[in-house]
Design a protein around this nucleic acid. Structure first.
Length: 294
DNA sequence: CCGATTACCTGCACGC
DNA sequence: TGCGTGCAGGTAATCG
C-alpha cells in the first residue's frame, strides 16, 4: 500500500504519539513477517524509550535509547495504528484483540506516552512487511538500507542529480523511477503521476534525460520538479487511501481523489481529454496518457 | 545490463 | 451464495 507519502504520513502520526514514550510489553503473534523477527525482539524493545522516529525511503526508523534502531517496512499491506490504552498498557494487562477484523495484528506494543498509556498495533494481512533491530551506527550498512538511492525530497535532488543517476541506462523511465537504488521511495502510483505531470511517456528511455555530454535535459528538470511536487502534495493530503490505508490516527488519506492517471483507465486525461491507457511494464500496471505524455 | 516472470501472502472485485 | 480468475501500494530471486 504505502509509498513515500504514506510512510511519511504514518511517521508523523507515530511521532506525535510516541516520541519520548517508554515501551512496555511487546507481543508478537507469529515468528515473523516476511522474515523472522530478530533474536530477542521483544526483550530488546521492552523498557526502551523512543527518542525519535525517522524515515528513509519507505522504511520507518524508531531510534531507541538503547542505541538500537527498530527498522520497519510496511510492504504492500502493513499499517500501524495507535490506540489509547489507559493505565493497563504499562500494567501489561492488555488483551490481544481476537475479532475477525484484527486477525492480522501481528505485533502489539504497549507504551507509556506523554498523554498516558497506549498500544501500537502493527497489522499486515499479506505479511510482505518486515521489522529488524540494528545498532544505530550500523544503520547505513544494513542490507536493506545500504543500497538505497537519493531521497527525492532532499535538497540534493534536482534535475541534474536525476540525469546523472539515469545517464547511460537503457531502461524505460517508469522502470528507472521504481528502482529504489536510484531514487528511493517512489512506487507505482507516484511514478505514474509524476510522469504524467511532467508530460513524459513512461516508455521513454531513462538515459535520454542526460545529453551526450552528461548535461541534464529540460525533461530531467521537469521530471525532478514534478516528482517533488506530487510527493509533497500527497503528504500534505495525508497520503492516498486505496484499499485500507489509514493514517496512524485511523483517518484515511485524501490524495487518491487527486490522481490524474493512476487507476483511471478509460477516463479522460485531465489535461488533454484523451483516454487514459493502462499498459504493463516490468510486471506492473502503468497508467498514462499517450496523447500528451511524450 | 535488462526485462519478464515468478514468488512471497491475503483480500477483494468481478463474472458466471 | 459460491467459485474461479485476476489484480493489488513492495521487494527479491531467477531465467533468458
Amino acid at each position: 500500500m504505502p509509498e513515500l507519502p504514506e510512510v511519511e504520513t504514518v511517521r508523523r502520526g507515530l511521532a506525535d504519539a510516541l516520541t519520548g514514550a517508554r515501551i512496555g510489553q511487546v507481543r508478537t503473534n507469529r515468528r515473523g513477517l516476511r522474515y523472522p523477527f530478530p533474536a530477542r525482539f521483544a526483550s530488546r524493545l521492552k523498557g526502551r524509550r523512543i527518542d525519535s522516529i525517522g524515515r528513509r525511503a519507505k522504511y520507518l526508523l524508531f531510534f531507541l535509547d538503547s542505541g538500537e534502531v527498530l527498522l520497519a517496512h510496511l510492504g504492500m499491506s502493513g499499517s500501524f495504528r495507535v490506540v489509547r490504552g489507559g493505565s493497563e498498557a504499562m500494567a501489561g494487562r492488555f488483551r490481544f484483540p481476537r475479532s475477525k477484523a484484527q486477525t492480522h495484528d501481528h505485533v502489539v506494543i504497549a507504551a507509556e506516552g506523554a498523554k498516558g498509556g497506549l498500544f501500537v498495533i502493527y497489522n499486515d494481512p499479506r505479511r510482505f512487511g518486515f521489522m529488524d533491530l540494528v545498532a544505530a551506527g550500523e544503520l547505513e550498512r544494513h542490507p536493506r538500507i545500504a543500497g538505497l538511492g537519493i531521497e527525492p525530497l532532499s535538497d540534493a535532488f534536482d534535475g541534474t542529480a536525476l540525469a546523472r543517476l539515469f545517464a547511460g541506462r537503457s531502461t524505460p523511465l517508469k522502470s528507472a523511477l521504481l528502482d529504489q537504488r536510484l531514487v528511493a521511495g517512489i512506487g507505482n502510483i507516484y511514478a505514474c503521476e509524476a510522469l504524467w505531470q511532467a508530460r513524459l511517456a513512461p516508455q521513454r528511455n531513462a538515459g535520454g534525460l542526460a545529453t551526450a555530454s552528461g548535461k541534464a535535459t529540460t525533461a530531467a528538470h521537469r521530471l525532478a520538479r514534478e516528482i517533488r511536487d506530487v510527493l509533497a502534495r500527497a503528504i500534505a493530503a495525508g497520503g492516498s487511501t486505496l484499499h485500507d490505508f489509514r493514517q496512524a490516527d485511523g483517518e484515511p488519506g485524501n490524495f487518491q481523489s487527486d490522481f490524474s492517471v493512476y487507476g483511471r483507465e478509460g477516463d479522460p486525461c485531465p489535461r488533454c481529454g484523451g483516454a487514459i491507457r493502462r499498459v504493463a511494464q516490468s510486471g506492473r500496471s502503468t497508467f498514462h496518457c499517450p496523447t500528451c505524455q511524450r
